[in-house]
């Protein structure tokens, strides 16, 4: 039997389309989780910063749990136990819920660091102009602190996008799951994983480039 023939025989152009669609699902689940998770994370970060010991006793340990338990365990546990409390979520929704909380737990530390990056004299100066507490947060702390921790946030976002592959264990056909299906059929892991890798790269590279250009612009 000639190996090179079987190498290509299984992989058809429509499989590329199948992978492309899966990449879109990866993108979709990532965009949802990262954006909702970021908003929640910023709120948690603010609670950590302002809440002092009350936050240290409540929010902080919960976020620690989500940050430290491997994502795959969180996903499987949530997917299998949510129905017990009456939540019947499909793999996609379960994935979004867990990835969102996971993102939020990571962004919370980043956001807290961002608030801490704006020193007290700067904030006093803002308040002395008559800005309210919230105006100071919105117009001074957010832009200054946000820029300071933007690279860390980009790291979190790209990490979550790659980690979204783990939702495949619930049966959601995103990029990794789609690759596994094709590998089973074609028996060509090298080719298919290379294509999947290229898709992941295509998803994250523009983001890193855009982030880098923003940072350059802010640095001037």
């Amino acid at each position: 039997m000639e190996p090179t023939i079987s190498f290509f025989s299984g992989f058809a152009p429509k499989d590329l389309l199948f992978l492309g669609e899966a990449a879109l699902r990866t993108m979709w689940i990532s965009i949802l989780s990262i954006s909702i998770g970021t908003v929640l994370g910023v709120v948690f970060g603010w609670v950590l910063y302002e809440g002092k010991w009350a936050a240290a006793l409540t929010v902080a340990p919960i976020l620690d749990v989500f940050r430290s338990v491997p994502l795959i365990i969180q996903l499987v546990l949530f997917y299998n136990f949510a129905p017990i409390i009456g939540l019947n979520l499909d793999p996609f929704a379960s994935g979004v819920v867990i990835l969102t909380i996971y993102t939020a737990s990571l962004v919370a530390s980043v956001a807290r660091g961002g608030i801490e990056a704006v020193d007290a004299p700067m904030r006093r100066a803002a308040r002395s102009l008559g800005m309210s507490y919230w105006q100071d947060l919105r117009y001074v702390v957010l832009p200054i602190g946000g820029r300071a921790v933007f690279p860390a946030w980009v790291g979190v976002a790209l990490g979550v996008m790659k980690d979204s592959a783990l939702v495949s264990v619930l049966g959601y056909v995103e990029l990794l799951k789609a690759s596994q299906i094709l590998i089973t059929r074609t028996q060509e892991p090298f080719l298919i994983l290379s294509i999947a890798g290229a898709f992941y790269f295509a998803l994250s590279y523009p983001i890193s480039r855009y982030a880098a250009s923003l940072e350059r612009k802010w640095a001037q």
Binding site: P121, M122, R124, A125, A126, S128, P143, I144, W218
Partner: peptide, 11 residues
């Protein structure tokens, strides 16, 4: 009020 440190908004 004007402070010792000028605290310009850098952005």
């Amino acid at each position: 009020m004007v402070f010792q440190q000028w605290n310009s908004f850098p952005h």
